[in-house]
Design a protein around this nucleic acid. Structure first.
Lengths: 210, 210, 210, 210
DNA sequence: CATGAATGAGCTTTCATTCAT
DNA sequence: GATGAATGAAAGCTCATTCAT
């Protein structure tokens, strides 16, 4: 008798539409009209499912974080060797498959810019970055530990790798043909490998440094 | 009754005002009114000196590029040793002095986002990035050459370092207290040093590789 | 499969919900959604039972008039003495029990404002006011007649008392702690008593003045 | 060289336009477009001179309060006798001259309704009502004192008279031809006169009751 | 050159009403 | 009867740009 709710599906559609539009025009220029057009919906419907435009943005960030999380779990579940796991991670993030997801990358860059000036976005963006940093730090610690090296530099190293990734996204989105193709994944892998090899050995008889 | 033309000075004032405003609010939200207020000028005067808001943005990018260029020439003029020159460069870009110029960094991040969606901005932004890439490549080649190493990987390495720099700007502007402090300069220096050391030796009697 | 029609009950629920919402937000801001929420019903149901939002307002005015009418009949039925009847009426309208019905008073004030600008509301509101005026006039005439006084000033006097009542509603709804507490009932009673006492005596042998 | 500011004049024009529109349509339906049209201005100009629609309303209330204040000072300055001053006041507020200012009365009624639901409006409205109450109380105290009567009931009496005035405004705006014409001024005068005469005498040898 | 008012298009958001289920 | 999604026409507000003074 009653109508079946479809809010979750609609919210997902609208969120996806924002991703597409934001990748091309940025958040400010992603008008409700354009989001609705992209989703094939009436403009008024957007605000039926979302209280504000900002809320769609929050939903998008959460969606992207969720997708990334799921992907890593899948990828990392298949590989046991720490070095290979790290390579797989970097490949997944920076590798050539990226071409298929240019709009995801561009959208992420736009979200990063929005985080600079909007408190609420900054908080959520910071959480996602934190999570990523923690994941990367853990992967690096595994590599270091395998080689009986001191793990204390892991988080700094992770931050540098994360910066390289974010910068690669930025430059690939904002410049055309300026940057050498495919440099990022190789460079990041090399950076990590060299850094791990250069890390000091853990103290012989000590337990893990706290 | 002849007036001293002050157009150039006014343009510079307005351009600097845009830098301040854009760092806080982004380009879209940097209204003519707010730029004028920041510069202490009447709103109507802005469009006397600039044809459009976009033109101020272009002027800002050029100003930032010019300032950077001047600074590097000064810094690099004092140092002869290639390794030290590179260190000086990275320190200047990523070092602790950056705190004093947080708004410059934030403005640059905003400009980068604007480049994603505006053709004209993208072109100029790309030129600046290209220049930076060329400078960094040259610095790296000097280092490699000094150690009789093959210089062919220089531009790829430069791209990776540039990405790390841009990413560090982004993350420092968009997150608070998420990233370890001061990681970027040290990491970039280490990355460069290791990469140079790991580069293959140039062929002994060969001419420069084409 | 025959359903028990519950339209009348539903209409009453919705009408009561409008009273609550209108008291807080006024008629314009009393959205269908908020009325439905207040009534615990689905939004779509409102327009099943009412053709338009305006129709709910009309229903509310009629309901309030009906409630008032029923109350007066009950109150006035118990008292025989004209002076006491008038006092009972004024007490019922302006007395301290009013606190319990602050939302009824506020809603009535909002309806009064709506009457200023909507022809249809004005007509119904005018009918209710007319009825009240007639009732009050009759009560006053009884008092005057009991003291063998001329009843011709009754309707003017009634109008003044009605104005005082409406104004007291307005001021109690729109100001906090500005007006002395409980002034209205006492003042109105005093006004009426003095006015009745001051009215000229009816001509001895005359029939009732028409 | 510079353009002469005309903001104050424009603000006054816009405020006057709101008065006219609000009298006909209420505050909610007084759209920026309609206010601009009434004032003969471009819609965008409204928000150049006022930050928000609400701010125009505040300006209107202040203007009305100012006008009333000025009028009373003029009227009351000419008359010395307390009883005549009170009559002059009531005549000015409720008398037949009111017809010329029907829109002022209607606007005031609409503002009163707005005060019920908007905190900010309620505060300002309350201040104006307070002022009026104080003025009326002072006038009444003068009358009572002249007759050596106790002045303690003045503020309650003033409140009742004020309520009668506000109610008369309401009923004259919201009903057509329901209320007897011109009842209000006469009734209020009578009410006041009787009340003053009925007030207890001040204690013989006492100084003025505090 | 300088000023500040003026313009109008476009934005997000609200909402009465309709309708498929 | 009942539900909740869908629609589209405003609404208030912002703002780059223009222009009279």
């Amino acid at each position: 008798m009653a109508r079946t709710p479809n809010t979750e599906a609609r919210r997902a559609e609208i969120t996806r539409a924002l991703l597409t539009v934001i990748a091309q025009h940025g958040y400010e220029r992603a008008t409700i009209q354009s989001i609705a057009a992209q989703a094939g919906l009436a403009p008024g419907l957007i605000h039926y499912h979302f209280k504000s435009k900002q809320e769609i943005l929050v939903s998008l960030i959460e969606m992207m974080a969720g997708v990334a999380r799921a992907r890593y779990e899948r990828i990392l579940g298949d590989v046991a060797d720490p070095g290979l796991r790290l390579d797989a991670y970097l490949e997944a993030r920076l590798g050539t498959g990226k071409g298929a997801a240019a709009d995801v990358v561009a959208a992420w860059v736009m979200i990063g810019a929005e985080a600079v000036r909007q408190e609420e976005v900054r908080v959520i963006y910071g959480q996602v970055v934190s999570e990523e940093l923690a994941l990367l730090t853990a992967l690096l610690e595994d590599c270091l530990r395998e080689q009986q090296r001191d793990t204390r530099g892991a988080s700094t190293l992770a931050a540098a790798v994360l910066a390289m990734m974010e910068g690669a996204f930025q430059l690939s989105s904002a410049t055309s043909a300026v940057m050498p193709v495919g440099y990022a994944a190789a460079a990041a892998k090399g950076f990590v490998r060299m850094s791990v090899s250069a890390a000091p050995m853990a103290r012989q008889k000590g337990r893990k440094a706290k």
